[in-house]
Design a protein around this nucleic acid. Structure first.
Lengths: 356, 356
DNA sequence: CTGAAAGCGCTTACAG
DNA sequence: CTGAAAGCGCTTACAG
């Protein structure tokens, strides 16, 4: 059992500062808000007294009169299982945090399992004035959150560009470029049958990666490059890999839409006794730390999620304070070579490979 | 460029409800706060009018008069790299969220890189009255946050028990039990030389796992079971594994303090051409999804982080609302068998194993 | 059982 | 350039 201790010396208020500085509290407010029209020496004195007393304006009181919360909201709709394997999320948050910390603002986070709770979460944040704006991550096909943000009059920034009409600023990171690099790399090694394991195609970035894959393979003159759609989970990656192995003709290289699926793919290939990269080349997406330490180290497409978080936070803050903000385009994802890609096995007349 | 739309119909206040119900706003306040002493039919009418008007009491206004924020704080001090690989964190948050959502409370999150920013984060949360209480995760040796919470008069719950005097309630999950199971399992298979790769020993759970390992191996009559200390990262796990492979005599089984290190260990063993489990048994810790999809599937010690989050949230809420809360003990972590453990290779007179 | 009033700690027109 | 006052939307003694 535990009793809370609550003995604290009283926190000074704007009234205490005003009294001690011999001015009205309105003036003190003007000073700390950097409003023009305060005599320089008065401003000096007020600032001096405030810092002597260790006064910080009460965020709560400010909230009530300004209707600003100095907080930003992030709602993640993911099964905990998938969230846990996803390297994007913590890195993104660290980036957001790096910007908010220096502004003395705060991040309010929700993790929700499904669409209804997601909508409830947004409505609740808006109704309770918990946040000044929100990050819209994991954009979906015809994402309803674009109009929801408008309905709730909630300033918002999207990660990537939605496929519905939007007036929200977007912070975009091109992953097409990385996919193209990967395909060029594989083609240069001699691969002709390349497969793609997608993420959840409801998610725009899963679609975009798949579309980029199709465009790039077509541009390279490859035909019939299969895609298997799944959900970004390790389980999904493993199942998709098994399917590809039994397809005929089987691919000689697989490009996965994220690292966890690629690593699970490596597991399936090992279980089937197919050495990577000699019998099969594998490419991941994310550039996670783990990708460097599996065997063989993954060739993967690296995106900077932390930078993305910082840029999104800055854009959202600009939107909130200025009323508008330009879109931002980040450096594209790029291919990082590991040891999981090599020339395809020499084709034998009747395919000497055996799949158990 | 984007312009924020701000057209919304005005949100009703307690005054509107009081007027329409023909009572004072004080009475309305009594009704929604379930205070005794309101005539049943009056209460009915007020509730009726409130729901007709779609009124929700303003959280902000409540904050100012009650000095409660209806928010809980979580500060994670981790390098983004390590955070990204850590399955605990998202699952824990999902658990916390499952409790907060139904209470209409909110989680305020900070991700900080080092100790000074961690302290700043806590002080700032307290000074700005951003939260009613905090979660203290990743307890460290002689953790200063115990006294910091007291100094800031911030209600707090610890995950696990600190090694300093504390009055804070703890929510504890015993990982000793899982380690013991793992050692018994390995010993039963015939292993005598078992090694442990620890996490960052500043962290209490890393220590506890190491100490449990030592106790359990000693209890089994094993001697000289080495431990290599590292930092929970994949890089650390890989380096530690390499060191163990060159030690003489090399272990026949390695127990890692988390799954990412174990998976990295698998990578190193594969690179050295040492088949797992034939030449080396491997045990992880966490029970991540990925552990099931690497090859061979990891034998690992599973803890329920989501349950931990939910229990911690409930405990913290009880502490805040009741002023005290009992400690909670969760079901212990337990061993989950994969394919990465087997009897040790038969000992040859002069060790037939070759390490490249 | 209910009402009128003060108070939480700020911001912001409005006068001077 | 500065002060006095109202207001943000609640809660909470204090009277009746």
């Amino acid at each position: 059992l535990t009793i809370i201790g609550t003995s604290r010396r009283p926190v000074p208020t704007i009234n205490d500062v005003a009294r001690k500085a011999g001015v009205s509290k309105g003036l003190v407010s003007f000073v700390i808000n950097n409003r023009p029209g305060v005599a320089p020496k008065t401003r000096e004195r007020v600032l001096q007294v405030a810092s002597e007393m260790g006064w910080r304006p009460s965020v709560t009181a400010r909230m009530l009169s300004t209707r600003k919360t100095f907080a930003l909201g992030l709602v993640m709709r993911r099964a905990p299982q998938i969230l846990a394997a996803d390297p994007f999320f913590p890195a993104f948050m660290a980036g957001v945090e790096s910007v908010l910390a220096e502004e003395n603002r705060v991040l309010v986070l929700s993790v929700v399992p499904d669409a209804p709770s997601e909508e409830r979460a947004y409505r609740s944040l808006a109704a309770d004035h918990r946040v000044d704006g929100i990050f819209v991550t994991d954009l979906r096909h015809l994402d309803r959150r674009i109009e929801l943000a408008a309905e709730l009059a909630l300033p918002a920034v999207t990660l990537g560009r939605p496929d519905v009409p939007t007036t929200l600023p977007a912070v975009d990171l091109d992953d097409t470029h990385g996919i193209e690099e990967a395909i060029r790399h594989l083609v240069a090694l001699g691969h002709r049958r390349i497969a793609h394991v997608t993420g959840d195609l409801e998610l725009l970035h899963a679609r975009r990666r798949r579309d980029s894959f199709r465009r790039a393979t077509r541009a390279a003159g490859l035909e019939a490059c299969p895609t298997v759609s799944t959900d970004f989970s390790a389980a999904g990656g493993a199942a998709a890999t098994s399917r590809l192995l039994t397809s005929d003709p089987a691919p000689t290289a697989i490009v996965y839409a994220n690292d966890p699926m690629a690593i699970a793919g490596l597991g399936v290939l090992a279980k089937h006794g197919l050495p990577v990269p000699r019998e099969m080349s594998v490419v991941g997406f994310d550039g996670t730390e783990m990708a460097r330490y599996v065997y063989p180290a993954l060739t993967t497409i690296e995106a900077d999620a932390e930078l993305w978080g910082a840029a999104a936070a800055r854009t959202l803050l600009t939107l909130i304070t200025e009323g508008q903000s330009p879109d931002v385009v980040l450096p594209p994802a790029r291919l990082v070579l590991g040891d999981s890609t090599a020339p395809p096995p020499t084709a034998h007349p009747d395919s000497s490979r055996s799949h158990p």
